[in-house]
Design a protein around this nucleic acid. Structure first.
Lengths: 120, 120
DNA sequence: CTGTATCCTAGCCGATACTG
DNA sequence: CAGTATCGGCTAGGATACAG
């Protein structure tokens, strides 16, 4: 799913969250603004490189907002944009579907490796 | 998003359609049962290997049904299962979201390379 | 007609070290 | 604290040839 080549709203929408960690990031930010290292701690398995990468993509997609406080030491806060909130709600819908459907025997979200405290 | 390791309904759901062509296949099947070569012709850009691969995955995920008619030459029909229909509807919802949101300047789905006659 | 079997590539992702 | 820079592995997907 390349970003600029597909013209399908569904694929475009899906490409917005198709990084390996974007849903998780979305979830973390849904609690309110979070700093870089807080994110890193909430999602220990992600590397700094990939975390930054995904954050940059999400920012340029307009899903999240990156606010820099000109202090020393550096201080950066990430938060959901309005669009970030609305797409997050969509995936709450999907979650509902995923849970409803017993046919697929979905184990309830209990111990995603980096997703312990909350549920998507 | 590995299939058997994640426990998140959202990720599980997304993994169901995270092949590059699965949405397209879903769409083709939504019109009714289709034979292998019909699919290949509707989606010319896909290779036989990948087409078969994705079909097999979708089948084992319970989204589609593969029916073999014991004839010569071989005759195989693919169709949506009940679950396939229901997930397809979800992504119709997403499409609606994608189209509503002008902020992302979604070009209307007009000329996906292999997605001409219908819209997702 | 409905697929396998090979071989190959691009891009995602990770580990680790380093920086303003 | 909030990131770059580098190197390198893995795997989904693609091209092509062949088979029952």
């Amino acid at each position: 799913m390349e970003k600029m080549e597909n013209r399908c709203p569904v694929e475009t929408t899906l490409s917005l969250i198709n990084g390996k960690w974007k849903l998780l990031i979305l979830k973390e930010l849904s609690q309110g603004p979070v700093r870089y290292n807080q994110l890193k701690e909430s999602i220990p398995a992600i590397s700094t490189k990939v975390l930054t990468q995904q954050l940059r993509e999400m920012e340029s997609d307009g899903m999240i907002i990156r606010e820099v406080f000109p202090e020393i030491p550096p201080h950066v806060e990430y938060s959901l944009s309005e669009m970030g909130v609305s797409i997050f709600k969509i995936f709450a819908e999907i979650r509902r579907w995923g849970l409803e459907d017993d046919k697929r025997n979905n184990p309830k979200c209990s111990d995603c490796q980096s997703c312990r405290p909350y549920h998507l």
